[in-house]
Design a protein around this nucleic acid. Structure first.
Length: 616
DNA sequence: CTAGGGTTAG
């Protein structure tokens, strides 16, 4: 009779926890109820209270939850496992291992939940495989949850082979097991293996499909990502906000407005529209900005009901790379005012903006304040921004000094910023120092070699140019062919290579380019011959400059877009100085807006000037 | 209980 009453009371209490506990205060009320009814020794009741408490953020496990646990004299394995899970999720992780040992010590045998709670926290492969052996000895490796968490553990330890072995030896697998491995392959950049697994997956669900879409997007294969998204929808698989984010990121990489508007429409018509969904909204902001359309990015931003640090940072970075420094800074202060804490990316955006506008003092002030006032410790990336800010503004010595005295080891970005500034300000000495470091840090980054050799070329140091060329030959680094894309009237994208002669309209294009250059010459344009890094005669240089892919794309754009639209050009390499001048001039003599996205940033040409203020 | 997610400069 008595036992039966206790059982009923336990049952009732757990029901109360499950249906009425939503705040810490509720939990404390329930706790009082537990004491009144003498249930504080019940593993069943306390396990459920713990399970609830660990869903509330910011409650340290060692405080209230662990206290509740230690008041139970003979905890059962469920109660142990609940606390192990809490420590495994929120740390300190070592505590979960200690609890596991203490439970063995007290002859309390683990259950499968014990292991599935434990594995996700293990980052040490030695410890991980030891516990794998335990799980095996206790007979739990045929348990799906346990095996799946073991796979996950090996993946997180970087032991993909071991994870695969567990997977291959499992008697039964579910979609989770497959997807864990698919994602692991995708993250290691091996989309072929991911795809092979996915093809063999007999029960593809939304998550596994999404993993493929996202995997292709993250591995810079946006067309593949779109292909999988299409197949997914054709197969009637549901899509959610995470799927959309993957597709949106793919569209951002393609940088074409046709795709951008297409996916935006799909998002708007789903349950995850940008107005209500911060995740999708922030992704769309980034996408429009990468498609060269900051106005539309800002429209999305304005239409969002909720905004967080991601939305603001994406917009700030968007304004920054488009040269809209004041808008970026204004947004930064607006964000502070409404109480959103900036993070490291926000500051990268802010410094990039300052750098563009030559706002050296403003940037330095914020750099000095970022840790003290906003609690964000500067990283090497922020020092790279500062080196860029100082260097771009012409303070090369100051930039070099900053780099040489920074508290952490400078990374490639830091030296790269310095090299870029040396190129702009034609300083072969600083360029040499920066590239010496870069050649060690990034021996295969071709851009660095080219920038150094161009800097030497600008200074007429042809011996040094050939020395760098030789270095490139030795490392077997070959120049990518320059390539540009431009959107024509009907949204079709046309591709041009440097020196292209294959385009069906090449004669019209050449003529249009020639006409344009004649008009530019009439207002004083001179081909920038010293930006050609080859020691050849002037006619050769002229010819070479004429054949740059972005000029062909520009001429094509002039012929094949409406007069009131923006000509959008994308380029795989950095835009050259001569092309930059031509774009400026073209925007003046034709009255057209031109946007060029090169591999560094956006250039908005309007009425003869560029948003980058001729620094890039 | 286990799987997919956003912003990063040279």
């Amino acid at each position: 009779m008595f036992v039966g009453r206790i059982r009923a009371l336990e049952w009732e209490t757990v029901r109360i926890i499950e249906s009425h506990c939503t705040t810490l205060n509720h939990a404390k009320q329930v706790h009082a109820h537990i004491y009144r009814n003498n249930l504080h020794q019940s593993s069943y009741v306390i396990t459920n209270l713990l399970r609830f408490l660990t869903t509330i953020p910011h409650i340290p496990v060692h405080s209230y939850p662990h206290l509740l646990f230690s008041q139970v004299h003979s905890p059962n394995p469920f109660l142990y496992s609940a606390l192990i899970r809490a420590y495994a999720r929120n740390g300190p992780f070592l505590q979960s291992i200690r609890l596991y040992s203490s439970m063995l010590h007290r002859n309390i045998f683990p259950i499968s939940f014990t292991f599935s709670a434990l594995f996700p926290s293990l980052k040490n492969p030695t410890l991980g495989s030891q516990l794998h052996v335990h799980a095996f000895l206790f007979g739990f490796v045929s348990d799906l949850y346990v095996s799946n968490t073991i796979i996950d553990m090996y993946v997180k330890c970087g032991l993909l082979q071991s994870a695969r072995k567990v997977f291959d030896e499992m008697p039964h697998r579910d979609a989770v097991s497959w997807t864990e491995l698919i994602v692991a392959y995708a993250r290691s950049g091996d989309m072929d293996s991911a795809c092979e697994l996915f093809d063999g997956l007999p029960f593809k669900d939304m998550v596994s499909w999404t993993s493929m879409v996202t995997g292709y997007a993250q591995n810079a294969m946006p067309k593949k990502a779109l292909e999988f998204f299409r197949k997914m929808r054709e197969g009637g698989v549901e899509t959610d906000e995470i799927t959309l984010v993957g597709v949106i990121s793919a569209c951002a990489q393609l940088g074409v407005s046709g795709h951008a508007n297409w996916i935006r429409e799909i998002a708007e018509n789903s349950k995850f529209g940008p107005a209500s969904n911060v995740l999708v909204g922030s992704a769309l902001i980034d996408m429009y900005s990468k498609c060269g359309n900051v106005e539309e990015a800002y429209n999305v931003f304005k239409g969002m009901k909720k905004r967080n640090v991601f939305s603001y940072s994406s917009m700030i970075v968007g304004f920054a790379v488009h040269g809209r420094a004041r808008a970026a800074i204004k947004l930064f202060y607006e964000m502070l005012e409404i109480g959103i804490k900036p993070n490291h990316v926000t500051f990268v955006g802010v410094f990039t903006a300052c750098s563009h506008a030559g706002m050296v003092e403003q940037g330095q002030k914020l750099f000095g304040a970022m840790e003290e006032c906003y609690g964000v410790a500067p990283t090497a990336d922020h020092y790279a921004c500062m080196a860029d800010l100082l260097g771009r503004a012409g303070h090369l010595e100051k930039a070099l000094q900053l780099v040489q005295t920074m508290p952490m080891e400078p990374n490639g970005g830091v030296w790269g910023a310095l090299l870029g500034a040396s190129h702009v300000h034609r300083n072969p000495d600083v360029a040499e120092i920066a590239s010496r470091h870069l050649f060690e840090l990034e021996p295969h980054n071709l851009g660095n070699y080219l920038l150094l050799s161009n800097t030497y070329a600008l200074a007429g140091k042809w011996d040094d140019v050939s020395r760098v060329r030789k270095l490139m030959r030795e490392k077997q680094l070959r120049k990518y062919p320059g390539c540009s894309w431009v959107e024509a009237r009907n949204g079709i994208v046309h591709e041009f290579f440097a020196g292209d002669v294959k385009h069906p309209e090449i004669n019209e294009i050449k003529k249009a380019l020639d006409d344009l250059l004649q008009r530019l010459k009439a207002i004083g344009y001179q081909p920038k011959l010293n930006s050609v890094p080859y020691d050849i005669d002037d006619d050769g240089k002229r010819l070479l400059l004429m054949s740059h892919s972005e000029k062909l794309a520009l001429a094509f754009g002039l012929l094949n877009t409406d007069a009131d639209s923006t000509i959008k050009i994308m380029k795989n390499l950095r835009i050259c100085e001569d092309c930059h001048i031509v774009m400026c001039g073209a925007s003046k003599v034709t009255g057209r807006k031109i946007v060029v996205r090169d591999n560094m940033r956006f250039h908005h040409f309007l009425n003869g000037t560029c948003s980058c203020n001729n620094f890039w």
